[in-house]
Nucleic acid binder design. Sequence first.
DNA 1: ATAAGGTAGTTCGAAATTGAACCGGATCAT
DNA 2: ATGATCCGGTTCAATTTCGAACTACCTTAT
Lengths: 160, 160
Amino acid sequence: MPEGNFQSRWLAPGVDDVWNQFLTVTHRLEHQIDRRLQDNHGITHTQYEILVRLADAPKHALRMSDLAERIVTAKSAVTYQIGKLADMGLVERHKCESDNRGVWVKLTDAGRERLEKAAPCILSLVRELFLDAITCDQADELNKLLETWAGNLDRIERGA
Amino acid sequence: MPEGNFQSRWLAPGVDDVWNQFLTVTHRLEHQIDRRLQDNHGITHTQYEILVRLADAPKHALRMSDLAERIVTAKSAVTYQIGKLADMGLVERHKCESDNRGVWVKLTDAGRERLEKAAPCILSLVRELFLDAITCDQADELNKLLETWAGNLDRIERGA
DNA sequence: ATAAGGTAGTTCGAAATTGAACCGGATCAT
DNA sequence: ATGATCCGGTTCAATTTCGAACTACCTTAT
């Protein structure tokens, strides 16, 4: 650390930029998606994600914990959001027969409709911003990277 | 949409997975970083980012607005966080001579020290999780993608 | 059977983020 | 210069998130 200058390049040059760019870009992506979803369809990105997960699930229903795991948030946040979505009529809670502690969350018809209306809008944005820039080869490459990162995260989360 | 089944594959197969994985992985990455930073160094990821930006800036100082732009949050959030960091003594506010409305935020010595202690910890995590998985070629490739995405975001933010 | 420990979900309080409203201080026209 | 407008930053209320504590239920071992 010569002449009192602060160490501003933290990693190998170039690599350090990748990380910074990565953070910035992901923030900006989330921002844009959130804004468009909110403006045009009255739901947040989190809520949209919940609807998508439910739509993808068999019988369009999931347990609270599964939902929490899939959208990567605290259980309490899921309780909160499902409360809001239920108030909007987009989702319903059902008793779980096999486990009396459990709750099934099910997409309602209104929820499905809302999602079907929102999805094209948001997907066109995702394409425009994110996917159109990627060739098939790059998508494969990126996918490999994401798998690796996911694996690393599994390991760390287990180990820590 | 045959036999009432919901359209669960939104994009071309594979591509759609990339997007989902991308969201999940970024969330999990942020989570891990936040947790480690909080547990070991008593600052949040946002606060860490602010310290880094200040350290990188000439004279270790930035204007509030610049900071807001760089860490991609609302101005009010920056006001809030700088308040906290100032309470912790990691940062100082200074009058701006050239513009009496303005505020310079400057890293204090304590702030620099805190950052120097936290950086290796968080960087080793970033390496372990994120960077070690990348070859130089992949880093270049990823960098190109990020540039493109950033460009797209510029365009959209301008246009919308 | 029953006690011990684990799990599902909610509740609660604290912290963070946002957008809108606001307050000067600048800037630019006439 | 002076009035209109713009810009930097703060304040405020509303929303969201998190973690810890809690309740109720399940599971397992003895």
